[in-house]
């Protein structure tokens, strides 16, 4: 179907975009890659009165390492992450996940920050943001705030972002070589939304024991969720195959799964167990 009519604005600067957002509020919507917004409009599920196209704002097209954080601007496209943007586990994890995001011609347009703002439950970037502890830099006219990933995801397609706010940048920690990151997802066809995914990050101390552990699950509930008990179970000991299997089993029990006719809860828990185990084992195999 064709999209409903809207007014179009193409600001050239961040300040101009924020002024437009302040003016249009609930009726205005930021257009970045448009790979989720435009289909939603074509289905007439969204009818924003105004689109504020940020694609011509050069200052948002950034992706840089700074003070041990990877700072990802609002116009950094998915395709940018297909090859590591920084050396080490963070860049490798992003590259590993990027190839699972939809298809190549979607990745040339869709953006990292757009995914976080859209907050699809099956978004790879949202799951990684929660696992690694992303921080969102949110701007509004005359104001700025930082929102940690733990407070960002509120419900399906719902985040802490206000109607007059722009997610200008998301940052991720640049993890050192003592971290092992893993990623695994399951979908029925290439490029489909994942039925389950797991992102894992383990820090090993000099003795080879797990000193820190983070496990996030995506595509299984309204928002990405942290598997806290499963992660905690790995601390203080070497990551042996038995311990990884036990942690994966804990991850499968620690959340309320989305259920539908094709994916009953038991199946989803089973997928989480398998994806968590694969992500953990894969992260340690290299």
């Amino acid at each position: 179907m064709k999209c409903p009519p809207f007014d179009y604005h193409a600001p050239r600067s961040q300040a101009e975009a924020l002024a437009l957002l302040a003016r249009h509020g609930e009726e205005g919507k930021i257009l970045a890659g448009g790979q989720s917004l435009v289909p939603t409009m074509a289905f007439r599920l969204a009818r924003p009165a105004s689109l504020i196209d940020i694609n011509r704002i050069a200052e948002l097209d950034t992706c840089r390492a700074e003070a041990n954080r990877l700072r990802i601007g609002a116009l950094a496209r998915h395709a940018r992450f297909e090859r590591p943007v920084v050396p080490g586990p963070t860049g490798a994890l992003l590259a590993r996940a990027a190839e699972h995001i939809a298809h190549a011609p979607i990745r040339t347009r869709g953006t990292f920050c757009g995914s976080l703002a859209h907050a699809d439950p099956a978004s790879e970037w949202c799951c990684i943001a929660l696992a690694l502890g992303a921080e969102m830099r949110v701007l509004r006219e005359g104001g700025e705030r930082l929102v940690p990933a733990a407070d960002w995801f509120q419900a399906v397609f719902t985040t802490a972002l206000g109607p007059d706010e722009l997610l200008a940048e998301a940052s991720l920690p640049i993890l050192g070589p003592d971290w092992r990151c893993g990623f695994a997802e399951f979908n029925r066809r290439a490029g489909d939304f994942a039925l389950a995914m797991a992102v894992t990050a383990l820090r090993l101390d000099v003795a080879g024991h797990v000193a820190e552990a983070r496990i996030a699950l995506g595509g299984v509930a309204g928002t990405p969720v942290l598997a806290r008990e499963a992660a905690a179970s790995l601390l203080g000991a070497p990551p042996t195959p038995d311990r990884l299997r036990a942690a994966a089993a804990l991850a499968a029990e620690g959340f309320e799964p989305t259920e539908d006719a094709q994916v009953p809860a038991d199946y989803r828990r089973d997928l989480v167990r398998a994806m968590t185990r694969r992500a953990l084992e894969g992260s340690l195999a290299a």
């Binding site: 179009y8 448009g34 289909p39 074509a42 289905f43 196209d53 395709a79 040339t108």
Partner: peptide, 27 residues
Amino acid sequence: CEHGVCGACTVLLDGEAVRACLHFAIQ
């Protein structure tokens, strides 16, 4: 499909493959 699934409308925009149904002409 007109919603980005089928790829029949794929064109190159500044050298990059894109879905022309998910891109407004004005952009």
